[in-house]
Nucleic acid binder design. Structure first.
Lengths: 249, 249
DNA sequence: CGGCGTTTTGATGCCAATCAAAGTTTGTGG
DNA sequence: CCACAAACTTTGATTGGCATCAAAACGCCG
């Protein structure tokens, strides 16, 4: 795969907004969302008054499994992983979170996963007490929080399907397409930032690093994707979607 | 699929005209929980006034993936599975639900899984509109519903770990221990009902029927469990918990 | 440049899938 | 109540996909 495509750095080098402009000054000012005069339709807007900005360096954790759940977060920039670990050191990454995503809301009294910054990350941080208190009184917010959790649950079910029933090829292809979609990819084509390591992908997809690497190499050879400096570029979304389906069986 | 449908449409509306013919011989008495004078600490108690009893025969479905979410359910007796299916016919069973369990609450506008009765089942059935309306006004109920979903999410994450990182032996052992725990087993010993088929277990654990069967046979040979008429008996919970750990690697 | 962590690539092995068939249980109809 | 068909389960033989082991190539940062 080291075919090192010459055109590796065209003008469109910025698209991974995920990792652009991260570590600049961390203020702790009460955050207000991108100013817009619209009415607070989204119950989550209510939280903003309690939010404080916080920067976390790559590799550091927001909270660990078992910690009392004191804060919830919204990502401003950067990338986060939620990790489950077992006594043998086996790891399962539940989700990768990108700018705009919320995390830490999936807790009862304590967190059951660990949340770590994949890259230098800036978040808005909400005290859980405030969230709960507000939700108690405000139906819209409560509703919104439940929706959030329901969506998360739906994704988890899809992931269970992926892990239980899909081949390595399908898993990798599905993952790349998901990242493309979430990375605000235009029409499914174009560059996709992959700020995580192969080990992270492997632990997310229930595979080994070697299998992930081999599978991506194969995808490159078929021309469905091409490697870029810090991610890939999707050349043929349809081929990518078909992949695994052909390999399997 | 078998004929077994008494097309009678009783007094109360059935959820879905298409598949309406689910319940036969169903009374529609307003349900009250086992009478107890205690205050309604549990927000869910509020729902009882809206609940109606309904019987569904084995193999029939409560709702299908894609259906508008009109009802939620609590199991009185019987057993239910929530199923995800893909175009190739591959199946993933998200959960088995037992008496006392709730299901159908994990929906936004439509259900994304199918819910089917594993055995003849009796449920209490709550109109979703009523649930939502009540939750909008009642913070305790809203909170309770979110907790419910959060617990479900936590289980889903554990299942992702199981599917992504555990061996066949560990999966089967974990499943049996879980069923034992949920079946109100005394101290983890004793009989465990397994109302589902091997195919169901396989589709829940991301394995094949043959592998499930072989693994259980091995567990029987080691004396950790023993077969019973319609399930198993756990003879040695510790050995069961160790199983897979020794086999793996 | 040189050390180190990550990624790629290759060789080999093993667990679980697949293929196949016998054995058992369940349900149906005579 | 029995006979038979269909579905489910078990067991065996074989294959194959992914893990594991191993080492080279690459990229990063001091």
């Amino acid at each position: 795969m080291q075919a090192r495509q010459a055109q590796a750095t065209p003008a469109n080098r910025l698209p991974d907004g995920a990792r652009a402009a991260i570590g600049n000054g961390l203020r702790t000012t009460p955050t207000t969302r991108p100013a817009d005069g619209q009415a607070p339709q989204d119950g989550l807007d209510l939280l903003d008054q309690f939010g404080t900005r916080r920067a976390v360096r790559r590799g550091h954790e927001f909270y660990a499994a078992g910690d009392p759940a004191r804060f919830c977060y919204r990502i401003v920039s950067g990338c986060v992983r939620t990790v489950g670990l077992d006594e043998d050191g086996r790891r399962q990454i539940a989700e990768f979170l990108l700018p705009g995503d919320l995390f830490g809301f999936d807790a009862l009294d304590t967190h059951h996963l660990t949340a770590e910054a994949l890259t230098d990350t800036v978040v808005v941080c909400y005290p859980r007490r405030a969230v709960e208190a507000l939700a108690e009184q405000n139906g819209a917010l409560a509703r919104r929080l439940r929706d959030l959790t329901l969506r998360s649950l739906r994704r988890a079910h899809e992931k269970m399907f992926l892990l239980g029933r899909k081949s390595a090829g399908e898993r990798v292809a599905a993952f790349l397409l998901e990242m493309a979609r979430r990375g605000a990819a235009q029409d499914g084509q174009g560059p996709v930032a992959l700020p995580m390591t192969r080990a992270d992908m492997a632990d997310h997809l229930g595979l080994t690093i070697e299998t992930v690497s081999r599978t991506m190499a194969r995808l490159c050879r078929t021309g469905a994707i091409a490697p870029t400096r810090c991610g890939i570029e999707i050349r043929d979304p349809a081929a990518l979607a078909r992949f695994g389906a052909v390999t399997r069986h």
